[in-house]
Design a protein around this nucleic acid. Sequence first.
DNA 1: AGCCCCATGTAACTGGTTACATGATTGA
DNA 2: TCAATCATGTAACCAGTTACATGGGGCT
Lengths: 179, 179
Amino acid sequence: MSLPHAILTALLEKPSSGLELTRRFDRSIGYFWSATHQQIYRELGKLEQAGHIRALPAQAPARGQKKEYEVLPAGRAELAAWVRRSEDPKPIRDALLLRLRAAAVVGTEGFGDELRRHLALHRAQLAEYLAMEERQFPPERDSEADRLRHLVLRGGIELERFWTAWLTEALAEFDRRDC
Amino acid sequence: MSLPHAILTALLEKPSSGLELTRRFDRSIGYFWSATHQQIYRELGKLEQAGHIRALPAQAPARGQKKEYEVLPAGRAELAAWVRRSEDPKPIRDALLLRLRAAAVVGTEGFGDELRRHLALHRAQLAEYLAMEERQFPPERDSEADRLRHLVLRGGIELERFWTAWLTEALAEFDRRDC
DNA sequence: AGCCCCATGTAACTGGTTACATGATTGA
DNA sequence: TCAATCATGTAACCAGTTACATGGGGCT
């Protein structure tokens, strides 16, 4: 039940249309909760029906027309309740670790390249987050909300650091074997 | 499409019944790919129909009866092909980071306790993995397959270290504010 | 007989993915 | 007028979750 809450958070930060939300999910929010436009439109419909958000008036409700939403008090209350609710961490599901384990059984041929490819992707992601950090969190921006958002971004950064470190170690292991 | 391959890997390591697989998913394989018994039975049915595994003969196929499976050559081939296939890393979806971001908007009241709870859970998981490492990978066990499996476990360990470190940092931030 | 545990399953639901459809606006 | 792009949506499917059903074997 996280997507509707991700959308409520995004809309509280700034009222938006479905496509704008999609783009924001591709950027800032997307680094810890991704969603496609199809999901977002479906969820916006549900949230509107539940009375958690509403379309800003003075918008033609026609098909190809932009439709902006804002959060209603009920939506904010629901989000606050969700934040206070306690939820266990979900067990990891990582296909790359799984594939490495499978490779231990059926052979590692060609797997080094895949590890190198992932390493490059994670390095790029790390660089992007670091650039974001510099842009969005200069030392003088230090309000309460900023510090919390910064903490979230540092989570993303440290996660990418973990991956680059682990992949580097894995590749060293691979290269040692192949000599 | 990872669950069937997780099952093929587990069955290659050791032919098993559905319930035995479930237990192994709760332990070793589960630390990077979790699955419930319902999923496993369903997937075993599909894999059998596809000709990737078969039930060991000399087993009564009655309802309450144990049914052991082994991997057929076609299943091994499919697994090897999957390992060689290249797959992009999935974007992260983490509810705790999302909730922290939401808390930045609607207020952090009570969230420190949730962070402490998660920290305790991740510390416990880390301790469990470290114990597993000592048990399963003593220095003398150093075959090719062992080193790869060890690498996978170290992935799990480093991931838990990341979480404990990040949660500690987040709590420090919270406690600083509350004074 | 009644209970518990082992073992295998079914059914309904939820959330996420993929492919496609449709209308509005803009600029060549 | 045509193509590209912005914008909103539908439909079918797939994977994972939750709740429940059924049967066998052993224990008291």
